[in-house]
Design a protein around this nucleic acid. Structure first.
Lengths: 149, 149
DNA sequence: TCAGAGTATATGAGAGTTCAACTAAAATGA
DNA sequence: TCATTTTAGTTGAACTCTCATATACTCTGA
């Protein structure tokens, strides 16, 4: 009944898990050390920084930053305490909130970005050939399309 | 100075993050729902189940299960409470502990495995062509070799 | 226009993770 | 042989995440 993994698939799967975790740990360590925030928070700041007026509805932000709504809500509360983000009531929809990246938040992000990109290169792009990067892009895109929603 | 990501790299990176997270979430949800444990705990049980006598030194186990020592220590404490793992003092080295998978733990793992494998197929292998699986294996292996230690 | 259904977000508790101590037992070496 | 260093593992606190629930607003249809 169960379609078990054959030895090759097993190995691929374990490499996949190991690689993914090593990269995530590297990202988190670098950001925690140099910017005092986890990668999930960084992703939230990035998403906000790219939005018009650096502002976005909470649910839209959750989608962009690949966060659950609850996680985002907690995270933004922390980011607000640090003064990097501010929340405003949404005028168009009384239920909604809009998260806004403050200047201080933007400055923090700008300061953190170079070190982060360097880490991204070190842990992924520098390791792979251009051909592999293309392949990886296609693979991840396929996974994403399948699992998303 | 900073080697920023070009648009293609950006996209690949975002697909990579999204895919990785979607898969991890799928794994965690499935295991939490059907076996009442997170994926990290599952990996610990798997590692133990493959060891001679289903027993392993803590640090060796941490390495195999891709866990930090601290995380493993906390996790094994929980697994012990549930009766799935037992800890014994290591006779050869007075500092060491040996984690042992109990019969109950093994049974739990055996019961959880089919659903887990099914989820692994659904979220990764079924999505990719055999060629892509090969490519992904090579890519992850390269990342792992570079980042590990 | 109002009850009921649906949507946007927040919140609290419980659980897992990290980081920095801390304990205890080897190993080292003069 | 004893002080030092290293290694194995644990622990507590602070923090993040998840899940279920709560709150407050909007929409829908009779």
């Amino acid at each position: 009944m169960t379609r078990w993994l054959d030895p090759d698939e097993q190995q691929t799967w374990r490499h996949f898990l190991a690689a993914g975790q090593l990269i995530n740990e590297a990202l988190d360590r670098q950001l925690q050390r140099e910017a005092g925030m986890p990668h999930t928070y960084y992703m939230i700041l990035v998403a906000l920084s790219e939005a018009p007026k650096r502002a976005m509805r909470m649910s839209e932000l959750a989608a962009r930053a690949q966060s659950s709504q609850s996680r985002l809500s907690h995270a933004v509360a922390r980011l607000e305490e640090r003064g990097w983000v501010r929340r405003e009531r949404c005028p168009a929809d009384g239920r909604g909130n809009v998260a806004v990246l403050t200047d201080e938040g933007f400055a923090t992000l700008a300061a953190a970005a170079p070190g982060h990109v360097e880490e991204v290169r070190r842990s992924l792009f520098d390791v792979l050939s251009p051909e592999q990067v293309r392949e990886l892009g296609a693979i991840c895109s396929a996974v994403r399309d399948t699992l998303e929603r």
